[in-house]
Write a protein that binds this DNA or RNA. Sequence first.
DNA 1: GCACCTTTCAAACACTTGTTTAAATTATTG
DNA 2: CAATAATTTAAACAAGTGTTTGAAAGGTGC
Lengths: 208, 208
Amino acid sequence: MAQPDTKTRIISTAEELFALAGFHLTSLRTITTQAGVNLAAVNYHFGSKEALLEAVFDRHLIPLNDIRIKRLEGVAAQAKKSGRPPEVEGVLRCFTEPTLALLHRDSGTGYFRMLVGRSLSDPDQTVRQLFLGRVSGVLELLLDLLCQALPHRSRESVSLKLNFALGAMSHTLIFQGQGGLLGGVDKGKSIDEVIEMLTNFIVKGMEG
Amino acid sequence: MAQPDTKTRIISTAEELFALAGFHLTSLRTITTQAGVNLAAVNYHFGSKEALLEAVFDRHLIPLNDIRIKRLEGVAAQAKKSGRPPEVEGVLRCFTEPTLALLHRDSGTGYFRMLVGRSLSDPDQTVRQLFLGRVSGVLELLLDLLCQALPHRSRESVSLKLNFALGAMSHTLIFQGQGGLLGGVDKGKSIDEVIEMLTNFIVKGMEG
DNA sequence: GCACCTTTCAAACACTTGTTTAAATTATTG
DNA sequence: CAATAATTTAAACAAGTGTTTGAAAGGTGC
C-alpha cells in the first residue's frame, strides 16, 4: 500500500504524540523520526510547530464543527417553525453525539479524541487558545439554544451548567477507552452505552 | 512583615506558575527569579524540579485528603450503624464540599485550585501520575460508598458516572473565578451558589 | 537535452533547559 | 571566640529545543 504523503504523515504522527505526551513535551525530532521524514519537513510544510498543531486541530475539528452547527441550526429552525422552545435533550444531543462519536475506534480518531479532551484544560496557553478559538462559536450557539430551552433559568445559570457538562464530556473523551480514572471502567460498557449514559447524566443535571 | 523562608517561598511561587503555565513550561529560572531566591535553591532544598512539584501537591492535598477521608468514613460508619445504605447526596458532599472549598479566595488556595483542576488531565504524564497517586485512595473509598448508595446499579455504571462527576468538578475548579469558558459566567453567582449548583448537577446526574 | 519548481536532506544556528560544582556567606553549636 | 554545619551564590555543564540554511535530489514540462 502506498504511504500517505509527507504532510499527512506528519499530521497523523503529531496528532498521536500530542495526544499522548502533550504539545510541548513532544519534540519535532520525535515526530519526524516516527513519521519517517526529515526534521526540516515540519517547518517546510507548515511553517512552525504551532502551525502544525493548528493543522492537526483543523483536520478533524472543521468537519466536526460543521456537523454540530448544522444540527444546532436544524433544531433552532424547527423551534422557530413550531413556535415552541426546543427541548434540552434535543439541543444537547446536537453537540454531544457528534463529539462523543470520536470515541468510536473505527472512525480513526482515537488519538484526536484524547487531544480534544485535554485541550480545553491544557496548561499550555497556546494549546488552549488555538483550541478554544475553534470551538467558541459552536459553544455560544449551543448556549443560546439552551437558554431558549430553559427560559425560566438565567443565562448565567445555564452557562454555568453548560460548563459542568463540558467538563464531564472532555473528561470522558480522555479516559474512556483506556480504563477510566480508576481502571476497569470500560470493561462492561459498549461505547454507545457510554454515550447514552453521559448524555443522560448531562440532561438530568441540566434540567434539575 | 517577615518574609517566609526560602522553601515556602519557592513552593508558593511554583504553585502559582505551575497552575498558570503548566509544569514543563515553567522553568526553574522563572520560579527562582520571581521568588527572589537563587537558581540552585530548588535542587538544594527539594532535590529536583519533580520533587518540587510533589511538595506543591502535598502542602494542600494532604490536609484536603484527611478531611475527605474523615467525612467519608463518618458516612460509612453512620450507614453501618443504622443498617441503611447512605444517601447519594451525602456521600458526594463528603468529596465535593471540601474540594470546591478551594474556590474560596480567602483560603489562599487560588492557584492550587487551578493546579488541581488541570492535573488529572495534564498532558504531562509526570504531573498526572504524581497527582493521581495522591487521590486514587480517596476516589476508591468514594466509589465504594457510592455503590452502597446505589445498590441497584452495577459497579461499572457507578464508576462511569463518577468519572462524569469528576470531570465536571475539575473543569469547574479551573474555570470558575476567571469567567468560565465563554466569559462572564461568575458575574452573578457567588461561590457558594456555584458549589450548590454543581453538587446538585452531579447528584441529579448520578441518581438519574 | 535543458530549465524550472518542489521537496528532501544533513548540518549548523542560537537559545533554553535542569542539574552540578565549588567557593562564599551565614547560622548554629560547643 | 572558634569550629562545625547549613545555606546561598555565581558559574559552568551537558543535553535538548525550534528554526534556518544551502546544497542535493526528484519531478515536470518544453
